[in-house]
Amino acid sequence: MNARLDPETISLSAARLWLPVEELRPGMILARPVSGRIGQRLTLWLPVGTLITENTIAQLINKGIECVAVIDDDPPTEEQYVKLLEAAQARLRTIFGDEARMDNACRELFDQLCEVEPCR
């Protein structure tokens, strides 16, 4: 079990699939909220659980959204996901170097990246 994430977080992350908008199909469901902005002005907000329709896809394209997270119909098992996560974290340790020598600014970024779901 990965020491950084609890089982619920692992389960939520494993069930998300990030896709370019071009690959979206009606019937998919948003797994992360989507916001569109012009400067500081919010022009679009779609919450988690939004059912994607042709109109939703049109909205996303119209607002210049490039990719979104949807619920994965065929997610990896928890064991498979933890293995992917551990491989990603090992790679991060190569990129950032020895954890004991990391300065605080690098450490903050390293810690956040360790919790991000790996690309699938």
Partner: peptide, 8 residues
């Protein structure tokens, strides 16, 4: 943001 960067 991190995920969008990777996928894009």
């Amino acid at each position: 943001c991190f995920c969008r960067c990777r996928i894009r």
